[in-house]
Write a protein that binds this DNA or RNA. Structure first.
Lengths: 152, 152
DNA sequence: CTCCTTTATGACAATGATTATCATTATCAA
DNA sequence: TTGATAATGATAATCATTGTCATAAAGGAG
């Protein structure tokens, strides 16, 4: 039980010459548990609760690594800090975002995902051929006003 | 000739209780001329060439205003600073982005736009109904490796 | 299991983009 | 032309993120 997922990650890390360390494991745990998009500081605080040695720098460094590995997506909504979440990876809970222009609230939606993914795959194929670009992931944000920020 | 566009903007500003000032006019000019996504500093430097009084703060302030007005889109690629460009507004030259995960190069593409826009409109309709969210704009980014950053 | 090389960590300082402050100036409706 | 109000620009302040470096931990070799 314990460690089955850890072992999977261990493999992914070691493939790149990296090691599976406690901070890394805990960061992954936090990311996995909270389906939300978290800031580096959010993650730092969560990990800190059970491992008070963790340093904020380490969190940043590992997020950067995970982004490079393609395991984590770094997103920007409107609040000045980056948000991180697991990237699609063909996962079940892939989703897209509605971002409120006023209060910066973010709604994750998973409706229409089948159609969207299907459509995106077609587009991706065309684009990667034309631009010789290896597409690994995508981000779709709709911007506007959420229910409570609509003036009219 | 001169001023027809300015008058249009004057109207948009005054509708919100804002004024059309020289810095604003020049910032809009720069944004209109360069189809590229520009950073606040890029814009500052461009305006500065012909109006050396401009302050960086003013550029930030006005970009923020334009974003609020829905006239300008604020985007984040991977270089630590925000990029700005006119938002769609049903314009001819609406486009989406391919962002390289390694060198942060951004390719604007306008292929498949007809299909994409058609598809997005359908999605937007469904989402705005379900989430009572007033959608004004969207962002689509594909992430991966550009031609010259592909290792394999 | 212990040792050793290498990678990773954490405290701290430094950077750099963005924002707040505030006295001064410019816009524009009357 | 004038006056109320919005906008500007210089400066300082904030705050997320990155660089530095001495120390600690991982994990392969023996």
């Amino acid at each position: 039980m314990r460690g089955s997922r850890a072992q999977c990650w261990r493999g992914r890390f070691q493939g790149g010459g990296y090691r599976l360390t406690k901070p890394r494991e805990l960061i992954l745990d936090v990311l996995a548990k909270s389906k939300e998009h978290l800031s580096a500081e959010d993650i730092f605080l969560s990990v800190h609760k059970i491992y008070s040695n963790i340093g904020l720098t380490t969190v940043y460094r590992n997020l950067e690594l995970l982004v490079e590995m393609g395991a984590v997506a770094k997103l920007h909504f409107g609040n000045g800090k980056a948000s991180y979440e697991f990237s699609r990876d063909g996962e079940k809970d892939h989703h897209h975002h509605l971002v409120c222009r006023k209060c910066n609230k973010v709604i994750d939606y998973a409706d229409f995902m089948k159609e969207e993914e299907e459509f995106l795959q077609k587009i991706e194929k065309g684009l990667s051929k034309k631009y010789k670009f290896e597409i690994q992931d995508h981000v779709i944000h709709f911007h506007g006003f959420c229910k409570s920020c609509q003036t009219s």
